[in-house]
Amino acid sequence: MDSSLFQLLDYGVYGTAILVMLIGLYGALVKKSLLKVVIGLSVMESGLNLLIVALGYLKGGTAPIFSDGFLNGTNKVMVDPVPQALVLTAIVIGFGVTAVALSLVIRLYRHHGTLNIDEIKNLKW
C-alpha cells in the first residue's frame, strides 16, 4: 500500500481524538439541558484520553507487559507506558468529576423542577 496513505491513517488517530474532543466541547457549550452538558464534558474527556494514549504509541510496539510471549518473542519494542498510567489516573478523576456534576444536576432538578438552563433563572448572568 502507498506509504502516504498509511501516514494519513496514522494521523487519523489524532484527528479522531481531536474531533471527539471538539464534539464534547460543542455539547458542553451549546446544549440547553444540563444533563447534555455533563455528557458533553465526559465525551470531551474521552477524546483527551484518546489523544494522550495515542501520543505514547511507538510504531510496531506491543503493550508494555513483560509476558512470556514478549520475553521469548522477537519483537522488542514497547509503547510508552507513562501516558497509559496517566490516563488511568485521568479516567478515575473524570469519574469523580462526573459523579459530583450529576449530583449537582439532580439537586438543581429537585429545586427547580427543570433541567433547561434557560429556565433556571438563578444561573443567568
Partner: peptide
C-alpha cells in the same frame, strides 16, 4: 481550537520515538 490542536499534534508525529 481544532486547527491549532491538529497542527500541533501533526507536527509531533504519530508513532515516532519522541
Amino acid at each position: 481550537l481544532g486547527v491549532y490542536l491538529a497542527i500541533t499534534f501533526f507536527n509531533i508525529g504519530f508513532g515516532d520515538p519522541h
